[in-house]
Write a protein that binds this DNA or RNA. Structure first.
Lengths: 167, 167
DNA sequence: TATTGTTATACTCTATAACTATA
DNA sequence: TATAGTTATAGAGTATAACAATA
């Protein structure tokens, strides 16, 4: 997000949409698109999450990785990559950061000596649980501007978009 | 609904989520979030748009800029930046590309000699109109997995998320 | 021969500082 | 003093190629 979102003083648009408030541009086509609106809503909600995670020194991607490991003890790097759509080379640095803070540790995999099992430490589990509670609070809080039914409907429709009708 | 949050296990049990299909990870918390689902839906729809725009040599951001200019003749750079949340230095290259292809041109601003009015050329208007039709086709086509009512509801709820209840 | 984790690296996208010419 | 457009550049995010160890 950036701050360059101040409407300009005058609207030099000559003949654009006459039924729009003066000073505002006609962006109605873009605003009619699912992708455009979904992206803006995602950026808004991710911005809220960002603020809630900042006290823990976590970015959204760090929290996602930490959460997947916390909920799937012994998971491998490749599995985390597949679940979160992260490329393996880019996960290395993320894991290194979580390891250095003592929140994640690698142990040898029980059956495959190439792989490593990922686990959260007690400290990591604590941080993840608190962060998850904070994220859940903002998700169900007034910042979403949605009641419970609307949230349910919204998520159902979004899943339909990216998973198909069978979702 | 499904607000029950998974307990954070730190014990090294391999199969954490016994009620999940084997081989799949537990990502249920992330999947309960508006931001996560909105981002995935946005990436899906933007991917579709990407494919439709490729024949014109347009990326999504190029199409967005071209569309705003086409629908708002004489608009200034700063207004485009504000409308699309693009930082002014990053718009320069985008406009240069559209100018070099003969789709956009700058004229002097009628009242402010610092500014420039942006206009689409006839060729630019043609490309924009065709691209917009293609985008609209995929938007209302079977790839969205939504009927008209669902699309309307989805967009209304997404706007509520990022614009507030008054939207 | 294929896969896991890794390094190095390139490419893209986004953000900041600073300049010029106008207002 | 503030704003429009621009340059240069820094930083984050994302992508590909290739390697050693293991399957």
């Amino acid at each position: 997000m950036n701050d360059a979102v101040r409407p300009a003083l005058s609207a030099p648009s000559i003949d654009a949409a006459a039924d729009l408030p003066p000073g505002r541009l006609d962006t109605r086509f873009l605003e009619s698109l699912i992708g455009y609106n979904a992206r803006r809503a995602a950026l808004t909600m991710i911005g809220h999450a960002l603020q809630r995670l900042a006290p823990y020194g976590l970015r959204v991607v760090d929290f996602s990785v930490l959460t997947v490991i916390a909920h799937n003890p012994g998971v491998t790097s490749r599995q985390v990559c597949a679940a979160l759509d992260i490329l393996p080379p880019n996960l290395v640095g993320l894991l290194r950061g979580l390891e250095q803070r003592g929140w994640v540790e690698k142990r040898e995999h029980p059956t495959d000596r190439r792989a490593q099992g990922l686990y959260v430490t007690p400290a990591g589990a604590e941080v993840q649980a608190r962060a998850q509670a904070d994220i859940a609070a903002v998700e169900h809080g007034p910042l979403t501007h949605l009641d419970a039914d609307e949230r349910t409907t919204l998520i159902r429709l979004l899943r339909k978009v990216y998973q198909g009708p069978q979702a």
